Amino acid sequence: MKKTFSLAMVALLMSACTQSPTGREQLLFNNESTMAQMGTQSFDELKKKEKIDTDPKTNQYVQCVAGAITRVLPAEQQGDWEVVVFDSKEVNAFALPGKKIGVYSGLLKVAQTPDQLAAVIGHEVGHVLAHHSNERLTQNQIYSGVSVLAAVALGLSNVDNKGLYMAALGVGATVGVLLPYSRKHESEADQIGLELMAKAGFDPNQAVVLWHNMEQNAGKTPPELLSTHPSPASRIQALSDEVPKVMPYYQKAAIHPQCKRATN
């Protein structure tokens, strides 16, 4: 039994090694269909708990920006993404495996132009493209102990823990559990999102402006070493360094979306 388990563990670790879109090495235990199912279930639960913004103009605007981003995704990620605007003052957005995007209406006060909103949505979709939820869940499964790894390795079952799954997907703040993305995940999502928005025809320079807006809106923030997120200053500098690399995508974009911002 021990020999069988050891062989199963070796096979699991070998099969779980992969690379992110930026070439970073990752360990992913969970298949994409499982992650998509988790994302869909979590999104459906959020829609039941959160107030949904039904204003037609707001929804049309957000759908326009999100649709432009999702149209330039790799073939396997294209298709119908569900986009929901939540009626909340929270300055936030997220994307989940299973092709789900959520935008909180409070974000629209900080992301003041379509290009700035595209920077946020591109970033959030970047988390999905880079399998950050899967990677984070895998890390949590490792930390949870050998019993969890044995179940995964032997194909017995997935961990039946909705709180863990919701946290791993990045929507835990809504359900009282939070497992933040790491700084490396945030930086990688920034890089991927910048390329996505440029390919979609949105000005990548506006990602830098967005984070200046975020910095002004946030007030006092924890020092970078005490946070899992890059500091606004670090983020702004990193984005500024990346903009020249993606400008050719923006200049060659077939369409520059004319998404009309909703006004109150």
Rank of each mutant, 00 (worst) to 15 (best):
Q116G: 10
I69D: 03
R136W: 09
P204L: 10
A262C: 00
R24L: 04
S20D: 09
P56M: 10
L96C: 06
T113Q: 05
E242F: 09
V85Y: 00
L129F: 07
N59C: 12
Q63H: 11
H229N: 12
L225Q: 03
N92Y: 08
A8S: 13
P232N: 12
D203G: 07
H212E: 15
V146K: 00
R235T: 05
T4Y: 11
K184P: 00
M247D: 07
I236M: 15
A253M: 10
M9C: 05
L129A: 01
E188A: 12
H256Y: 07
S227M: 04
N205E: 14
P74C: 04
E195W: 02
K51T: 14
P232D: 12
D44T: 05
F86C: 00
V246N: 04
L169W: 10
L239Y: 07
P21Y: 03
A95M: 09
K184Y: 14
N213K: 15
G67V: 10
K162L: 06
S182E: 11
K252R: 15
G102F: 01
S105K: 11
M35Y: 02
S187N: 15
D53A: 11
A153F: 00
A130M: 04
G193Y: 10
A68E: 07
K49E: 10
N213F: 12
E45A: 15
G39C: 08
D53E: 12
E242P: 03
A68M: 07
T228Q: 06
E224A: 13
A150P: 00
Q112E: 11
A16F: 02
Q60G: 15
H185E: 15
H131D: 15
L178H: 06
V65K: 06
Q237S: 12
T22V: 10
H229E: 13
I101G: 05
A218K: 08
L108Y: 01
Q141H: 11
Q112M: 12
M35F: 04
L156H: 02
L226D: 02
A119V: 06
L196G: 07
A254R: 12
A262R: 02
A200G: 04
G67P: 10
D241E: 15
Q41K: 14
S234M: 07
G176P: 00
V65G: 04
Y61P: 00
S227Y: 02
L164H: 08
H127A: 13
Q77N: 11
A111R: 04
E188K: 15
H185C: 08
I101C: 12
K47Y: 05
A151D: 14
G98R: 08
F43P: 00
C17E: 09
Q216G: 11
S15I: 10
T22I: 06
V243E: 07
R183S: 14
A173R: 01
G106K: 10
S15W: 15
N140T: 11
A218T: 01
G122N: 09
Y249P: 00
A8I: 03
A218F: 01
H256P: 06
P180Y: 14
T221I: 03
G193D: 13
K199E: 04
